[in-house]
């Protein structure tokens, strides 16, 4: 899937609200992320970062507000939106007793990917796991599992990547690999929204720094390169 050339925002959120019981996690959140932008979302624990990503990924439903992806308003459940988005969260969404290749082949079937073998080989190369393709996931280190999770998110060629603390548990080499991947991602005109507690990494990777505080946008700074 290629990023659209029209000047609509890749991600547009307006007046988003989400409550968990009595606790308001997102309050009237409004933000936009453009095409070719990497946006880093900062905030303390409980600020609403993961909730925002889960809502954008279609894993949670907002209580109020509007979401548009690639210029199209998203209602409840949309297969179109699911194809636009690649999501790598805290959990790897992988099966320990399947190999890397089998995990990716399973997701390739769910996404109806044609020529899955080529796609799988390509994403494994992108995250430097080609030599572990036939190893079971449980035998991989945490960092490798994280990279495989990113490969899973990239498999169906989405145009919007949502990453929840992607640097967690990665060694420096893996962080560099992921940084390069995001750089190439943005250069291709695609968009990524990532959360992180690591300011150094977030600021190095991103074009924009967004701050969440108490479920609202506290700051939105464009970063100079």
């Amino acid at each position: 899937m290629t990023a659209p050339s029209e000047p609509t925002a890749a991600i547009a959120v307006a007046g988003l609200r989400k409550d968990f019981g009595d606790r308001r996690v997102l309050r009237d959140l409004t933000l936009q992320v453009g095409w070719g932008e990497i946006a880093a979302l900062f905030g303390s624990n409980g600020a609403g970062k993961t909730t925002l990503l889960r809502i954008l990924a279609g894993l949670a439903r907002p209580d109020a507000g509007q979401i548009s992806l690639a210029g199209r308003r998203i209602h409840r459940r949309s297969d179109h939106a699911r194809r636009l988005i690649g999501f790598a969260g805290h959990d790897t969404l992988l099966y320990n007793d399947l190999t890397c290749r089998e995990n990716l082949a399973f997701y390739a079937q769910l996404y109806g990917i044609r020529n899955p073998a080529a796609h799988i080989a390509a994403v494994l190369r992108q995250v430097n796991l080609s030599d572990r393709a036939d190893r079971r996931v449980r035998t991989l280190s945490h960092g490798m599992q994280q990279r495989l999770s990113v490969a899973r998110a990239l498999l169906h060629e989405p145009v919007i990547l949502l990453l929840d603390e992607p640097e967690s548990g990665l060694d420096q080499t893996s962080i560099d690999t992921l940084g390069q991947l995001l750089h190439d991602w943005a250069a291709a005109g695609k968009t990524a929204l990532l959360t992180t507690h690591n300011e150094q990494i977030g600021l190095a990777w991103a074009h924009r720094a967004l701050g969440l505080n108490n479920g609202g946008l506290a700051y939105d700074n464009r970063l100079s390169r």
Partner: peptide, 17 residues
């Protein structure tokens, strides 16, 4: 229960199926 181990259920739910 197996789907919960590493969030596999989320993997099924974000897929366009």
């Amino acid at each position: 229960a197996r789907e919960l181990e590493h969030g596999g259920l989320d993997g099924l739910l974000i897929a366009p199926v």
